[in-house]
Simulated assay, not measured.
Amino acid sequence: MTITSSAEIWVRSALVQVRADPTTIRRWFPMAARKVGAEHESVRIRLLRALPDRSEIPALYRYGDVHERRAIILSAAQLGVDDVLLELARDAFRSNDPRLVTASANPAVVERLTDEEVDQVLMKCVFMEIPLDRVPALTRRATARTSKMLAGFVLERVCAGRSVAPEVWPVIDRFPPSGELARIEQQLTADDPERRRAASAALDRRGAPL
């Protein structure tokens, strides 16, 4: 999708003004959705690229709506991740909005996260029922600790008689945690019929194609 010629004229004017006076982005950044419609995210990233430094970005994030915040986090792919953007991304993945959590899982950010932070974001995606195929940068960073955590999550779900998303299994099976897997299998003979049903369904999904 491309923006209209009149919208592009507005964008180019805004870019000129931002380059001349970075503080003007405080006005143009929130206006992008009204001026360019569906392409507001990419336009906001263009405005951020026009800034000579990162000094305006924290306030744009702090006072922005979810779309503005998401554009800032996604801009890391083009701006590069410095300490400013990394801290904002960390704030994004602590949020309860899946749009911000998935934005914080973009490859430019994920490569700067510690293994523990990767696990935190990945587990948050699982708890929020965000499909893991939307956050491949996280799953590529999976370790044996990640697999064990996910298997523990599956065990908790099974013991509660609840279903499990099938996409967790390829990550678990990258480093299969024998203890957790054995305890999941033990639920097949549990006294509670709901546990037996949940264990059977979860293990059936383990071998099913995604």
Rank of each mutant, 00 (worst) to 15 (best):
M1W: 06
M1N: 02
T2W: 04
S6F: 11
E8Y: 09
E8L: 14
S13G: 13
A14N: 01
L15A: 05
V18E: 06
R19L: 02
P22G: 04
W28D: 03
W28R: 09
R44N: 03
D53V: 12
S55I: 00
I57S: 08
L60C: 09
Y61F: 15
E68F: 03
I72V: 13
S75C: 14
Q78E: 13
L79F: 08
G80C: 05
V81I: 13
L85Q: 07
E87I: 02
A89S: 11
A89D: 04
R94S: 07
R99C: 01
S104R: 01
P107K: 07
P107V: 07
E111W: 12
V118H: 12
M123G: 03
K124A: 08
C125Y: 04
V126K: 01
M128I: 02
M128A: 06
L132P: 12
D133H: 08
L138P: 00
R140K: 14
R141W: 05
T143Y: 06
T146M: 10
L150S: 12
L150G: 05
G152H: 06
V158M: 05
C159D: 11
A160D: 12
A160M: 05
R162K: 15
E167R: 07
F175T: 05
P176K: 08
L181I: 13
L181T: 00
I184F: 08
Q186I: 02
D192G: 09
A198Q: 10
A198M: 11
A199S: 14
S200M: 01
S200N: 05
A202T: 02
R206P: 02
L210R: 07
